[in-house]
């Protein structure tokens, strides 16, 4: 396990996840242990079906482990129910999906304000200003009042990044956020992530892109449910 200095943001202890399938049990994660410190920028790699997305879903509370303990930003999330998890996630974790997942009937800025509303974060009057600032950070202020179906893939992903930062979470998790983007756009988006990390945000993302993987200070590898850390090479 990589040595973590400073405050721990993510801590997984003996986390396993088993799915029941028609052809028998599928072990998506096997006794995974992981610690991530504040401000770390971590990449996750692995072949398709290896358990990468399951790992991120464990960290975001989107899915529950079959066994083990998960503590995120000091909160044990395994014992939380769905609603408690949703509230917790709204404030503590920003999630970025491969397919952007913006609500199609809301404009870009409204999509960004939605998590603020759910979490009752920021005063109602301040939310548009805050959302616009986030859009400016991702260089999308001019598209604020457009509907998602009028934006390109790169613009959609930048909007999704801005949304993930809506409630200023200490941790942002992204599942193949550049998977659907061309290399130039992917590069721009990655640069945005690096900027976030520079500002102290802990960032974890799944990627298949070799050139991007090289740029992570710390790279985790998932295969058959096992997690290995590239920096020291031992099983986590």
């Amino acid at each position: 396990m990589a040595e973590v200095t400073g405050k721990q943001v993510v801590e997984l202890k003996d986390v396993s996840k088993v799915y029941e399938g028609p052809a028998g049990d599928i072990h998506a994660l096997r006794e995974v242990n992981l610690t991530v410190g504040e401000g770390e920028f971590i990449g996750v790699r692995g072949p398709s079906g290896s358990g990468k997305s399951t790992l991120l879903n464990m960290i975001t509370g989107i899915d529950r482990p079959s066994d083990g303990q998960i503590t995120i930003a000091g909160q044990d999330i395994v014992g939380l129910n769905e609603n408690q998890l949703a509230r917790w996630r709204g404030k503590q974790v920003g999630v970025i999906f491969q397919f952007f997942q913006l609500l199609p009937t809301l404009t870009v800025i409204e999509n960004i304000m939605l998590p603020m509303e759910f979490a009752r974060a920021w005063k109602a009057k301040e939310r548009p200003k805050r959302a616009m600032e986030l859009l400016e950070q991702v260089d999308l202020a001019d598209q604020a009042f457009k509907l998602p179906n009028t934006l390109s893939g790169g613009q959609l992903q930048r909007a999704a990044i801005a949304r993930s930062l809506a409630n200023d979470p200490p941790l942002v998790v992204a599942d193949e956020p550049t998977g659907n983007l061309d290399s130039k756009t992917a590069d721009r988006v990655f640069a945005l992530f690096e900027g976030l990390v520079d500002r102290g945000v802990t960032f974890m993302m799944v990627t298949h892109d070799n050139s991007l993987a090289e740029r992570f200070p710390r790279l985790l590898h998932v295969a058959d449910g096992y997690l290995s850390d590239k920096n020291n090479g031992h099983k986590a």
Binding site: T60, E82, A86, R89, G90, A119
Partner: peptide, 16 residues
Amino acid sequence: ISQIGIMKAVGGVTRQ
């Protein structure tokens, strides 16, 4: 359903 999932993922609780 997928939109419900997204709203939950960005902090929406069941009641909301």
